[in-house]
């Protein structure tokens, strides 16, 4: 009997302590990962982003809204990635703050010449590139800011959060140094990143690449023959060594480009850092992208 009473009491205390934890809602898997690392179980983290979802199409469901109303903080990526944030704030009680993790990270603007290749209408025409996570140093900054915000909701754990923040920041600095070393084998003339849309601005600025977004590589609609011809001309003129689709590539177009130009097809890159069963976690997704770039743009073994 005593044994059962003990188990009952332990269960009750676990349930109560879990219920007492402040709830933090995240809008991107990267944020979930970072909050879990920084708080180490001291908050309850609820990720509203669905597995396999599209970052630029996603909007929270009514069920997500209910969960958010119970939260102390909703964490967004910011830089206008979540175009619904104003409406979200209007529907949340004043006690729930929305924190934009990327807000204070220095912005990279989409080159006006590439504005038509922005990932969606909200991110075109000279606006800010919202994909700040392509630079580990930008993520390092965001983690520092996020750590300071989490300290405010968990003042009793300030010292531990500060220490963990320092650890994650050091890892991100190492990740950047690793990337610099790996990418060093790619000659200057081959540092051209041809992707479907202008999502790699932060990466290109950090590692001295030229971004060449080519509309249509990822497009679900088939481009016209004249557009395809124009794209082939551009790729030939720029002496492009490889093109990189993103995770939802249109194989037919890629095949046409490959057949017409002989330009190598790189492995798909993770633009939105939404992982899957094979590749997940920020560092792994970033390394996956860098390794694919090195494989396609670096010197071949015979060189």
């Amino acid at each position: 009997m005593k044994k059962y009473l003990f188990i009952f009491l332990v269960t009750c205390s676990v349930v109560l302590s879990a219920a007492e934890k402040p709830l933090v809602v995240t809008l991107h898997p990267l944020l979930t990962e970072m909050v879990l690392r920084l708080t180490d179980g001291e908050v309850e983290v609820f990720s509203v982003f669905p597995v396999g979802g599209d970052l630029h199409e996603f909007e929270p469901s009514p069920g997500d809204m209910v969960k958010m109303q119970e939260a102390v903080m909703v964490i967004a990526m910011g830089k206008h990635l979540e175009s619904y944030l104003d409406r979200l704030q209007e529907n949340l009680p004043e006690s729930v703050s929305i924190y934009e993790a990327g807000r204070l990270v220095p912005s990279v603007k989409i080159d006006p010449a590439n504005a038509i290749f922005a990932c969606c209408p909200a991110h075109s025409h000279g606006s800010i590139d919202p994909h700040w996570w392509h630079s580990p140093l930008a993520v390092r900054r965001a983690v520092r800011y996020l750590g300071r915000e989490l300290e405010k909701i968990l003042p009793e754990h300030k010292a531990e959060i500060r220490e963990r923040t320092g650890e994650v920041m050091a890892e991100l600095k190492d990740l950047n140094e690793w990337a610099v070393k790996e990418l060093a084998v790619i000659p200057k003339q081959d540092r051209k990143l041809v992707t479907a849309h202008a999502a790699f601005g932060y990466f290109c600025v950090e590692y001295n690449f030229q971004a060449i977004p080519v509309k249509g590589i990822n497009d679900e609609r088939n481009p016209s023959p004249s557009y395809l011809a124009e794209t082939i001309d551009t790729l030939k003129r720029e002496n492009i060594k490889a093109v990189f689709p993103e995770t939802k590539a249109n194989d037919a177009i890629l095949k046409s480009l490959n057949e017409a130009t002989g330009i190598r097809l790189g492995q798909s890159l993770y633009a939105d850092f939404i992982g899957n069963a094979d590749v997940n976690g920020y560092a792994n997704l970033f390394k996956y992208n860098v390794n694919n770039l090195v494989k396609a743009l670096g010197p071949s073994p015979s060189e």
Binding site: L104, P106, R141, R144
Partner: peptide
């Protein structure tokens, strides 16, 4: 040195 919203 990192100043908010400005490059390192």
């Amino acid at each position: 040195l990192e100043v908010d919203e400005m490059s390192d």
